[in-house]
Amino acid sequence: MLSIPTLKYIDSGNFFLMAGPCAIEGRDMALRIAERITELTDRLKIPYIFKGSYRKANRTKLDSFTGIGDEKALAILKEVGTTFGVPTVTDIHESAEAALAAEYVDVLQIPAFLCRQTDLLVAAAQTGKAVNVKKGQFLSGASMKFAVEKIQDTNPSAQVILTDRGNSFGYGDLVVDYRNLPEMQSFGVPVVMDCTHSLQQPNQASGVTGGKPRLIETIAKAAIAVGADGLFMETHYNPAEAKSDAANMLPLDQLEGLLERLLRIREAIL
């Protein structure tokens, strides 16, 4: 069970949703996306956490978009939370970022490639914020118990969330092993399926990550059927124009129908 104070509808019996743009590109786009998702999740009584990266540290090329400025983007995240009454989540990449980001958001997210970085996990736990750890593409679900232990040993009251985002499959593809979801749930923490990053095709010759967004619904449906506690999706009103992860995001106008179909699956398995 999540214990984030501002999370609404937690007793609705629905899965919770972490969704928003890959990166904060500006104030207007963030507020526009947050407003639409909040409208949907309020109507459907889905607990909602707004997601947006204040800085993108893991980019293939040096000239890739990384952000609009740390404090500027973090201030936008805080405004989203205040305006719509929803918690917010953003990535951190180094230990020194934990305390800064914690002043603005409710959940600190540890990127998959960094899930074994002890100092980063400890710093996140010390802030007292909830910590969402992405499972490394190179790890089994069972291996994530050590990330949970590092956080909980540092701060026994810390809320830990684990998120699966697929496993490396060859040099430029990922595959989802749904056994990882119940495996990670056995640690007594909420488990989320990242329905967009699990469809990435990294390390493309162009230097821009590819993806298969047409399969987002497939990944999401399977995750709910398996019993995922939450879903993670990046979405944008025009993914083709997005400055980060354009190849993987769900078009915002497709979110409503998808959530409605997922709720029917959730009802069927309860």
Rank of each mutant, 00 (worst) to 15 (best):
Phe113Met: 05
Gly170Asp: 03
Arg116Val: 05
Val160Cys: 07
Lys212Val: 12
Thr38Gly: 09
Leu120Pro: 02
Thr163Ser: 15
Pro156Thr: 11
Gly257Trp: 05
Ile24Ala: 01
Val175Met: 10
Pro213Gln: 08
Asp229Glu: 06
Leu108His: 06
Ala98Val: 10
Pro21Gln: 09
Asp70Pro: 07
Ala228Phe: 07
Thr38Ile: 02
Lys78Gly: 04
Pro111Phe: 01
Val176His: 01
Gln117Thr: 11
Asn180Asp: 15
Ala205Asn: 10
Gly85Met: 02
Val148Trp: 00
Ala223His: 07
Ala223Thr: 04
Val105Ile: 13
Ile224Ser: 11
Thr88Pro: 01
Thr209Asp: 14
Leu231Met: 05
Val133Ser: 02
Ala130Leu: 08
Tyr178Glu: 06
Asp164Ser: 12
Glu94Gln: 13
Asp177Trp: 00
Gly52Asp: 12
Ala228Thr: 14
Ala246Trp: 13
Thr218Asp: 14
Val192Leu: 11
Glu234Asp: 05
Lys145Ile: 08
Asn167Tyr: 00
Ala124Asp: 06
Leu62Tyr: 02
Thr127Asn: 06
Glu149Val: 00
Val80Asn: 03
Val107Leu: 07
Pro5Val: 00
Leu44Ala: 04
Arg261Ala: 14
Val191Thr: 01
Ala99Met: 13
Ala130Tyr: 09
Leu108Gly: 00
Ser198Gly: 12
Ile161Gly: 01
Leu77Pro: 14
Ala220Tyr: 10
Pro239Ala: 00
Asp91His: 04
Val160Arg: 13
Gly85Asp: 06
Cys22Glu: 06
Gly128Thr: 04
Lys243Leu: 15
Ser64Met: 10
Phe65Tyr: 15
Gly207Ile: 12
His197Asn: 12
Gln159Met: 10
Leu100Arg: 15
Tyr54Asn: 07
Ser143Cys: 03
Leu62Lys: 12
Ile92Ala: 08
Glu234Arg: 04
Glu260Val: 14
Pro156Glu: 11
Arg179Phe: 00
Glu35Ala: 15
Glu25Ala: 05
Ala225Ser: 15
Asn14Asp: 06
Ala102Thr: 09
Ser53Met: 05
Met193Lys: 02
Arg36Thr: 11
Arg27Met: 04
Thr41Pro: 11
Thr209His: 03
Thr218Met: 11
Lys135Val: 01
Gly13His: 09
Pro156Asp: 06
Cys22Met: 07
Ala19Val: 01
Gly26Pro: 08
Arg59Asp: 02
Glu267Gly: 08
Met184Ile: 01
Ala112Gly: 15
Arg264Lys: 15
Gly141Ala: 12
Leu100Trp: 08
Leu270Ala: 14
Pro213Leu: 02
Glu97His: 15
Asp253Tyr: 13
Asn14Pro: 12
Ala268Ile: 10
Phe65Asp: 04
Cys22Arg: 09
Leu181Gly: 10
Glu256Asp: 15
Thr90Glu: 09
Met249Pro: 14
Phe84Arg: 00
Lys135Arg: 12
Thr88Glu: 07
Leu7Phe: 11
Ile161Ser: 02
His93Ile: 11
Ile37His: 01
Val226Tyr: 05
Thr6Pro: 03
Leu17Tyr: 05
Gly188Tyr: 07
Phe15Asn: 09
Val107Pro: 00
Phe65Ser: 10
Lys78Glu: 14
Thr118Ser: 02
Pro182Arg: 06
Met29Cys: 01
Ile68Lys: 04
Leu255Asn: 05
Asn58Cys: 07
Gln254Gly: 00
Lys212Cys: 11
Val192Gln: 01
